[in-house]
Amino acid sequence: MAKPPTETRTLCGRTLIAAARQRPAVTTPPISTVCFDLDGTLLTYNQNPDAVLATAFDDAGVEQFCDPTQLWAAADDVDDADDDIDFLTKTFRAAGERHDGATDSPDVLAQAYDDATDHTDVSFRPGAQTALERAREHGRVGLITNGGRATQRQKLDALDIHDAFEIHVYAGEMTPPKPATEPFERATTALDADPERTLYVGNSLRHDVAGARAAGLQAAWFPVEGDGGDHDGHDPHHVFDSLHDLGDVL
């Protein structure tokens, strides 16, 4: 599912990234197709995440038991969801269980959080516009994003990039959510693309890198602060400091 506003974050884990780049090069087929994640990869929310979360707790009448970083760390415990609200409900429940918070009304918190979120108040992450243009010049381009069509379309329209993609896969609505392989397989089939020559660019090791690699795609990791650390077995083929790095890979 789509993550509503998180902190406006900068890259971290420079030591990790440097180490990743020092690993022996692995020969991979040349890239003919590029697919992107959306939230946290191509865009970031402009809203203050602490303010949005505080508003949600106040409106739901629940004592705040987590901060935005803790909330989205708990999202890793959510394997599947029916829609965006169900995803938020399960995320708040998981966060409450982790941080001894009230978990008897996670659905109320989920709705309050969604109501406090402006899905049109978004901005490009560094290099995103250039990366999209470069990918379109190079070959076919797709979008594979966790989140419902209605929510994600607001963000695409706000940045005027809906038509930049030849295929849109809304995982969690059209397929199981990432890291399931189905979203990636649906995209490569629709694009008539060879998975081994398809690069997927995302910010999450668990959902983007792991899912893409399991589906046979090449994976590029564009991390944000808080996402650095042990790869936990999800080694990306490439690590980006900025989406401008995509040009070097292509």
Rank of each mutant, 00 (worst) to 15 (best):
R14M: 08
M1K: 05
T15V: 06
A190D: 13
D163Y: 07
G216I: 05
K3G: 09
D208K: 12
A19R: 14
A54V: 04
L246T: 01
A73G: 04
A116H: 01
T120Q: 13
L156R: 12
E7K: 05
G216S: 06
R213E: 08
V224T: 12
G202S: 07
G40D: 10
T8G: 00
P106G: 02
D208G: 07
T198H: 07
T28A: 05
G142T: 01
R149M: 06
T15A: 11
A51Q: 13
L246F: 01
D230R: 11
D100T: 12
Y170M: 13
R197D: 07
D232P: 05
D107Y: 00
A131V: 02
A158G: 00
I17A: 14
R153A: 03
F36R: 08
I85W: 06
A94G: 09
Q47S: 07
R149I: 01
D192M: 06
F240Q: 14
G229L: 06
V122C: 00
T181R: 15
R21S: 04
D79M: 06
A81R: 04
D84L: 13
V224G: 12
T8N: 08
A116C: 03
P49M: 02
R213H: 09
G142F: 08
R197K: 13
G216A: 04
T151H: 02
N46H: 10
T198C: 12
A54L: 10
F65E: 03
L43F: 08
P29K: 03
D230T: 03
P223V: 00
R206V: 01
T69A: 05
G247P: 01
V108S: 02
L109N: 01
T103V: 15
A74L: 03
F240D: 12
T41N: 06
D160F: 04
D115Y: 05
T91R: 12
D39A: 14
A60L: 00
D59S: 08
A220R: 11
V169M: 10
A74P: 11
L156M: 10
P24S: 05
D58N: 11
H238I: 01
A102H: 12
R23C: 08
V209P: 09
L16W: 04
P176C: 01
T91I: 03
E173S: 11
G233N: 09
G148H: 12
D114N: 08
H207E: 13
G226A: 02
P4A: 07
A135F: 02
P24G: 03
G228L: 02
T27N: 06
T10V: 13
D82M: 08
L243Q: 02
Y200T: 00
D118R: 07
D67C: 08
E63A: 07
Q64M: 14
H162Y: 09
L132Y: 02
I31G: 04
T44W: 05
T198Q: 11
A18I: 11
T120L: 05
T6Y: 03
V209L: 09
D77E: 14
G226K: 06
V26D: 00
P126T: 00
V224F: 03
L16F: 00
T10K: 14
T6S: 07
T188N: 04
F240T: 13
T41V: 07
T103I: 15
T130V: 02
G147T: 07
R9G: 07
S123M: 08
V141Q: 11
T33F: 01
D37R: 15
Y113G: 09
A56S: 09
F87Q: 15
D114F: 00
A56C: 08
T28M: 07
